[in-house]
Design a protein around this nucleic acid. Structure first.
Length: 544
RNA sequence: GCCGAGGUAGCUCAGCUGGUUUAGAGCGCUGGAUUCAUAACCCGGAGGUCGGCGGUUCGAGUCCGCCCCUCGGCACCA
């Protein structure tokens, strides 16, 4: 069985969870759910927290607690955030866990053995007051004086461990240039290629351990207690450390790493180089998505317009979790640019796709089955369907135009194709497309008009139409379920069509196939799945 | 400064290696039709000099040059 290992970055535990963290994690979740739905692969989704930064120690001290307790507390916030988003991860890694730290030390040792990590010297501009180095640029801008206490910076050299990144330049260049899917989206791939061509320097992978407690946090360089693994390197290894066990080895290499564009360089260049050095397989895709902006403005703490957890929670409470997941998944910055989180657009999207789309379609079909057949699903006996004269139908035959077996198979095919490129919106459109088609069939055949006739032929037509509508919507609901984790299960319950576990995408979406709705089964009307929202209604949390 | 992406209907965007005649989709807006449904669904419309100028060509959003604008990356980020 093939595997599909999906990851999010591990999040900096000093941050408060916000839309950025939630978005990346949701994308991974929807993608993983789609893959589980697709069947045939062993899907595993990982997220977690990055806890070895110096600031974790200082923040903990500032809050009168220990680094570990501080990390425990904040890591829990991320779990809560992802629970709010309805994310179903398979594991949650924390870099302070022994299972991770042990592996990091092993990897570093292995790389020291091969010479890919070597002891060298770092020279830079040191601010003695702040006990930190400034970058060449920052030092120059400060006129080589401390920006804090104004004392002159000193040129300082100290031992440091480096990773021989330069050695992998050509291989990485060849890899990224030849494999269009390795770094996505393509605009990011171009950026990486451009920067790669400018050359690579070896990168420091350690930082010194001093008397300062903040420097004593993290993983030590094996065999040299005076140095610890630079937190970024420590963090990158999480993807491997979690599955580097006898039971989980099969999961490597990862199918896709989802991350924000800010950390693309580490993931697209340094990480693959580390893996090459370790002799490990390379991930299939490094996906660097863009940012969310808020109501057209860049989000910033100073502006106070950050879309935080409270704001997201307000959206789920007002419009439902599905509404939020749908908006993020279909309108998000998965492509090259950034995306705008705007209240008006949120409501428009919710109304157009969920309320007026799948929600309304299931409502009208469920209602007609209830009204005309007492809630018992009729059969399609193959009777000829006649278009209503007033509908303006211009096809040659109704059954030819609404050839559901083919339409549903095509929809499933489209989902699979979209998954190849992590195109979540495209995959979800396969489902909304089917729902739209159902609306069309109703308009063309007008079952509510046929229902006014008393003859047997009318009853047969009515049954055929409604069966087709219901069964097509069943397929649509399956295809939409990776995003709509609340509403679709609700529908399945009232319609009695919970998808069988373990079935493949093709089997579940086969119209009239083995998982089809059965004539004679109960179709309960059920409650309205997505109530249309008023875009003009005040929404305090949106700041409008 | 260097590298890259992009500027197409109110909004978000499709338009691959130039020629399916009057440049498309979705949403929004508007007119109509309809009532099974959540004022939903369906049909039609509104007409955007395809950033600007010049060029190549029988013919260019689609190629070339210059210019304007937006955005992203980089400037050895210990």
């Amino acid at each position: 069985m093939t595997t599909c290992y999906v990851t999010t970055p591990i999040y900096y535990v000093n941050d408060r969870p916000h839309i950025g963290h939630c978005y990346t994690t949701l994308v991974a979740d929807v993608y993983a759910r789609f893959q589980r739905l697709a069947g045939g692969a062993d899907v595993f989704m990982l997220t977690g927290t990055d806890e070895h930064a110096d600031k974790v120690v200082t923040s903990a001290a500032a809050h009168g607690t220990t680094p570990q307790e501080w990390a425990d507390r904040n890591s829990e916030e991320f779990r809560r955030a992802f629970a709010l988003m309805g994310v179903a991860y398979d594991d949650f890694i924390r870099t302070t866990e022994p299972r991770h730290k042990v592996k990091v030390a092993e990897y570093i040792s292995a790389l020291m053995k091969t010479g890919d990590i070597y002891r060298g010297e770092y020279t830079g501009w040191y601010d003695e007051g702040q006990e930190e180095y400034l970058t060449e640029t920052a030092a120059k801008e400060a006129n080589f004086h401390s920006p804090i206490n104004k004392k002159p910076l000193v040129r300082r050299t100290e031992p440091c461990y480096f990773f021989r990144l330069s050695k992998y330049q050509e291989r990485l260049l060849g890899l990224i240039a030849s494999d269009a899917g390795f770094v996505r989206p393509d605009s990011r791939r171009q950026e990486v290629l451009g920067r790669l061509r400018q050359g690579l320097n070896d990168v420091p992978v350690s930082r010194p351990v001093t008397d300062d407690p903040a420097t004593q946090w993290g993983v030590r360089i094996p065999g040299d207690e005076a140095h610890r693994v630079y937190v970024w390197i420590d963090a990158l290894f999480n993807y491997l450390s979690v599955v580097d066990t006898p039971q989980r080895q099969r999961l490597w290499p990862a199918r896709v790493h989802f991350l924000g564009k800010d950390i693309l360089w580490f993931h697209a260049v340094i990480w693959p180089a580390l893996l090459l050095a370790l002799g490990k397989g390379l991930p299939g895709t490094i996906y660097g998505h863009g940012w969310w902006i808020s109501e057209g403005e860049k989000m910033s703490k100073s502006m106070g317009n950050f879309i935080d957890l409270e704001r997201l929670r307000a959206y789920t409470e007002r419009f439902g979790l599905d509404a939020l997941r749908w908006y993020l998944a279909t309108q998000g910055p998965l492509g090259g640019g950034d995306a705008d989180f705007s209240h008006a657009k949120f409501v428009e999207t919710f109304n157009a796709d969920l309320a007026n789309g799948i929600g309304n379609a299931t409502s009208r079909v469920g209602n007609m089955i209830d009204k005309y057949f007492g809630g018992v699903l009729p059969a399609d006996d193959g009777v000829a369907l006649v278009p209503d004269a007033a509908s303006g139908f211009d096809g040659t035959s109704v059954r030819g135009t609404f050839e559901w077996k083919g339409l549903c198979a095509a929809a499933a095919g489209r989902v699979r194709a979209c998954l190849e490129t992590q195109d979540l919106e495209g995959a979800l459109r396969a489902g909304t497309g089917l729902a739209s088609k159902v609306d069309l069939l109703i308009n063309v055949t007008r079952p509510f008009t046929i229902a006014k006739r008393a003859d047997a032929e009318a009853k047969r037509q009515l049954g055929a139409i409604l069966y087709q509508c219901a069964e097509a919507l069943r397929v649509a609901s399956v295809l939409l379920s990776p995003a709509l984790t609340t509403g679709m299960p609700k529908l399945w319950k009232t319609w009695g069509c919970e998808p069988a576990a373990g079935a493949t995408l093709e089997a579940l979406s086969a119209f009239g196939g083995e998982h089809a709705l059965m004539p004679g089964q109960r179709i309960t009307k059920g409650e309205i799945l997505y109530m249309r929202a008023d875009a003009a209604a005040a929404f305090p949390a949106a700041g409008v």
